[in-house]
Design a protein around this nucleic acid. Structure first.
Length: 109
DNA sequence: AGCCTGACTCGGA
DNA sequence: CTCCGAGCCAGGC
């Protein structure tokens, strides 16, 4: 393994804190994990994820949409899971970040 | 070391 | 608002 294994753990720890029905961007996760600018590494971590305890479906890109996969169809599952949590996608398959983005503060809707 | 790729993001056109 | 290009970091060869 490499030193990044610890980073992955931090990333997953942050993602686990995302409440149901909320979403967070890759960049946001990275920053919260103490790795500002490592948005891509968040994507890597999720791609290698095999832990069901991590709500990976709540992580989306800065545009407010589910990032398309290069291979596989997990993005389809992701959308379904989010809708099941109450997240609404607009006609362009996008989510209103202003409304669903998770803000790790004492304030929650 | 260099080179290519990627579940990203930002700024400019 | 959408489309492109450049910057970014880490991983595999």
């Amino acid at each position: 393994m490499t030193r990044s294994a610890g980073n992955y753990a931090r990333i997953f720890a942050i993602i686990r804190r995302i409440p149901r029905g909320r979403v967070a961007t890759y960049g946001q996760i990275a920053a919260l994990a103490g790795l500002p600018g490592h948005a891509r590494q968040v994507g890597y971590a999720l791609a290698a994820l095999e832990d069901d305890a991590v709500p990976w479906q709540r992580v989306i890109n800065a545009r407010g949409e589910v990032s398309p996969r290069t291979w596989g169809d997990s993005h389809v599952t992701q959308k379904v899971l989010l809708e099941r949590e109450g997240v609404v996608f607009d006609r362009a398959e996008r989510i209103s970040l202003a409304r669903y983005q998770w803000k790790p503060r004492r304030n929650r809707t």
